[in-house]
Design a protein around this nucleic acid. Structure first.
Lengths: 152, 152
DNA sequence: CTACAGTCTACAGTAACTGTAGAGGCAAGA
DNA sequence: TCTTGCCTCTACAGTTACTGTAGACTGTAG
């Protein structure tokens, strides 16, 4: 069970076949052995490596960062600072996105509860999108937006 | 102060000049008037419309949804259900992403606090990325990952 | 008049894949 | 052995939402 085709590797890691070939093309994965007929053959090391890449991607690390992390792994004697730095940078990114998404959630919730089956002319979702600085509960919100939009 | 060039519109809305031209090319924005020399000239309606688009994009709505919303606006007599539906769909998306990001944040935090200036050979960040099913606190985590990775 | 910033078109590039076409490969059943 | 049906191959185009570049023209302030 040592060598497997690209389909098995895909099944083992949850990474699509086309994506595996893509990773090879951008040098995230080494070129594998080939069978006599030219099919890619992977060993267990490829499962590990691809799992590493996949997990890092799931965590939101960009491919460039993953490339960095992999290049660090080949030199295990060095200090861990750079790895730490990359992870911290990523954590900052994640937190930034979290804050943003929380605001979005609040606003969308507000928009939806305000929109209770009226006509579009007074739909608060559209009003909210048009005038984000205005309060949703003002009665005549919406008409202005519609007036402002050329009816093509 | 009624007509403005693309640069002013950009300044007024915070949308980059190139992006405005892009929106025009994908028909999110109507083609504006032109000056004698061919420069785009926008009125206040464009500020409204572009603000609407920008805000919706900030909320994470894909361009396709925005196109839908705009097309709904031109027909204000209809029911608000579709608008509501688009917003709910978007809220679901946002919540999905939120949950995911929260998990990421937790994991990254765990990774970083575990990594305290050692050598790469034992770096827990790399270990965590390699073996996400394993506990970080097992002593020998990491070496296996490095062993598994071909040193190119 | 001369800078210099702004604008124009057209096209290429970005990230991180996904999808397609058309050809060839491999294992199992009739 | 043939056939069925899925797997794999390469090469390239398409996706989303922009961003950047080249090279030319325009508009304005000193």
């Amino acid at each position: 069970m040592s060598l497997m085709t690209i389909g098995k590797l895909s099944g083992a890691t949850g990474v699509k076949v086309t994506t595996i070939r893509y990773y090879e093309s951008i040098d995230l994965l080494d070129e594998p052995e080939r069978s006599a007929s030219g099919q890619r053959l992977y060993g267990d090391a490829a499962v590990e490596r691809l799992g590493f890449i996949r997990h890092a991607r799931d965590l939101g690390f960009p491919v460039s960062a993953i490339r960095e992390l992999i290049s660090l792994q080949v030199d295990p004697g060095r200090d861990c600072d750079l790895v730490d730095q990359i992870a911290r940078r990523q954590l900052g990114e994640v937190r930034r996105r979290l804050t943003q998404l929380e605001a979005l959630e609040a606003e969308l919730k507000r928009m939806i509860t305000a929109c209770e089956g009226g006509k579009i002319a007074s739909c608060s979702v559209l009003a909210a999108l048009g005038h984000h600085e205005q309060c949703l509960h003002e009665e005549h919100a919406g008409k202005e937006v519609l007036a402002a939009l050329p009816s093509k």
